[in-house]
Amino acid sequence: MSHLLDKSSAFRQGVVIFVYLAVLTALEYFVAVTFKAISILVVVAILKAALVMYYYMHIYKLNEEGGSDAHSYAYKTGTNRLGLWLFLLSDSFVFAGLMTARINLLGLTRPHLNQTLGLAVTAVLLISSFFMNRGETAMAHGDKKGFMTNTLVTFLLGLGFLLGVVAVEWPLAAEEGLTASSNAVGAVFYMMTGMHAFHVFTGLIFLIVVWNNARKNIYSSEQNWGVEAAAVYWHFVDLVWIFFYPALYLIGTAL
């Protein structure tokens, strides 16, 4: 793996991107409660997605061939990386399909949900991405301990998000009469959050696995494909939420 940045500037980059993302999220929220311009929301979401894909998921690494020796770790990592990205591409079609269903069935309305909670879980997921990035960077520079701590924080935040959605938001919505079977709005809401929560759940398992493997000293600064994969997957889950959050909480008028 090539190190474009030394350790401290890599960390600094993570912080800067996080600040951008946080500001954009705040902007989103502000737009949604004030002048409701969908076009701005769409642009902001795309901007956030681009930041995450480039700085957190390192999409540019797809260009790294990994040398000419087909049996080297670096070359194989290049192959694996391509495989992972293709998988994410495929997976994103599931979410695109759900988004299609949401647009078709709800149009310019949205479910009536607890805004504060929505913003809170979104923030939690965003922060978890920040720690994931720190963890990955730590491992890339051979800092096993830093990786373990940061990943643990990521895991806890991820768990917080999952519980926030499934154990708090769902019962709250149900209390307000929005159940899976009440109407199409409920169906869409539970399906979208449910499918996303399922991915968060698998991401959490993935985090445990790499955390445990790191404990067994399997990764080094040179050979840590597992860590990179887990991080990219985790950021992908965040990426999906970047679109789902405005789709469910911000766009249109609440029913």
């Binding site: 299609t100 069935l105 169906a187």
Partner: peptide, 18 residues
Amino acid sequence: MGFFDPAKGGNPVLFQHL
């Protein structure tokens, strides 16, 4: 869940598109 049930505000034609 009422995705395609018109009585619940669903849309049968959506299925066909997907």
